[in-house]
């Protein structure tokens, strides 16, 4: 799968769970790799680009989570 497409899927997953359930990095890797049938490492690489670009960020609330940065 194209990396850009994977990035979009990851972003949408995080967006959809905002305000409902905080996702950990491992939740995202498990879900996206199962749903899309791709290796976890591929998902990880796509997620990393999103974080490096500040499109998604790590947050800490009694555990480390991936979220959309505040506006």
């Amino acid at each position: 799968m194209e990396k850009e497409e994977l990035k979009k899927i990851i972003y949408e997953l995080v967006e959809a769970s905002t305000g409902k359930k905080k996702l950990k990095q491992t939740d995202i890797l498990k879900k996206v790799s199962a749903d899309q049938g791709v290796e976890k490492d591929e998902v990880k690489a796509a997620l990393r680009e999103l974080v490096d670009a500040n499109t998604l960020i790590f947050t800490y609330f009694g555990g480390s989570f991936i979220e959309i940065p505040p506006k």
Binding site: Q25, D52, I57, T59, Y60, F61, G62, P70
Partner: peptide, 16 residues
């Protein structure tokens, strides 16, 4: 405690 602080790209190393 906690929150959203850090340096770009990193998920750790800074404790808010």
């Amino acid at each position: 405690h906690g929150g959203i602080v850090g340096v770009r790209g990193y998920g750790g190393g800074v404790i808010g």
